[in-house]
């Protein structure tokens, strides 16, 4: 009993220490004045994290939009209200699925890459040598990635939503024959920019920050061996996924006035 208590204590201390290190890295990297000469680094990371994720985001967004239209149509047609299809799909995509699924995809595609890259830099002593050259790796390696995640994630989520809605309109309007005018006007009337779209964007910004933070920290804190990097990459994906889903719940709770 006593030993179990002690083990719980130890685990929580380790967890607290980890959180402390993660917070320290974030603080050190973000709250330092960003330098203009580091702008090319940021652009490179936006390319790595954002542009390279566009394809997977587009494909997933299209599929999910199309599926939502199929399933939604099946249910709505029973009540004769298939004209609300556009509205339903748009609301679900903009508020929930857009930010959440693109957050998950971002964690799998970009987060894992960031962890592996930084972990490898650590294992090959690149971070150490940078430090010995008087360059702070937190500023040169970590900060651009954190900023890039912050910038890129809402863009990806917006793209996801739009491509999803487009996919839904292809299925709903062009294939299942929902009246086009009703599809779009119900959407325009029911979706409100401030109370739906903006809240979705806020969610995606939060997910972007959290996922890149986890990815960067796992890479930076990894045990510099091949097993260590593999484990850290896995942890990035798992922790990010859980974080996105749990945070989504709380953000919804707070923002949509429950």
């Amino acid at each position: 009993m006593l030993s179990r208590l002690r083990r719980i204590g130890q685990y929580s201390l380790v967890a607290l220490a980890t959180l402390g290190r993660a917070g320290h890295i974030w603080w050190q990297a973000i709250w330092r004045r960003p330098r203009l000469r580091n702008l090319p680094l940021l652009i490179r990371q936006i390319y790595q994290l954002g542009v390279l994720s566009v394809l997977i985001i587009a494909m997933s967004g299209f599929s999910i939009g199309a599926v939502l239209a199929l399933q939604g149509y099946n249910q709505l047609v029973k009540y004769g209200s298939e004209s609300a299809l556009g509205l339903g799909v748009a609301l679900v995509l903009v508020m929930e699925i857009g930010p959440v699924v693109s957050g998950l995809l971002f964690a799998g595609r970009a987060g894992s890459a960031v962890t592996a890259e930084i972990g490898l830099m650590k294992a090959t002593e690149q971070l150490s040598s940078m430090e010995m050259m008087g360059v702070d790796p937190l500023q040169r390696i970590v900060a651009p990635r954190l900023w890039a995640g912050f910038i890129v994630m809402p863009i990806l989520a917006l793209m996801f939503s739009i491509i999803g809605i487009w996919g839904a309109s292809l299925v709903g309007v062009d294939w299942l024959g929902v009246y086009e005018g009703a599809f779009w006007s119900a959407m325009q009337e029911g979706v409100d920019f401030r109370s739906h779209v903006l809240k979705g964007i806020i969610k995606s910004v939060v997910f972007g920050i959290v996922v890149t933070w986890i990815a960067v920290f796992q890479g930076y804190d990894t045990i510099p061996t091949s097993e260590g990097i593999a484990a850290a990459t896995t942890r990035t994906v798992v922790y990010s996924a859980v974080a996105v889903l749990v945070l989504d719940f709380f953000l919804t709770l707070v923002m949509f006035n429950f």
Binding site: T124, Q126, S129, M133
Partner: peptide, 18 residues
């Protein structure tokens, strides 16, 4: 960091930026 500018270090693996 200023002191480190007066030091050069050659790492075992080279530690070149890949």
């Amino acid at each position: 960091f200023d002191v480190r500018k007066t030091m050069g270090m050659m790492f075992q693996s080279g530690a070149l930026f890949s």
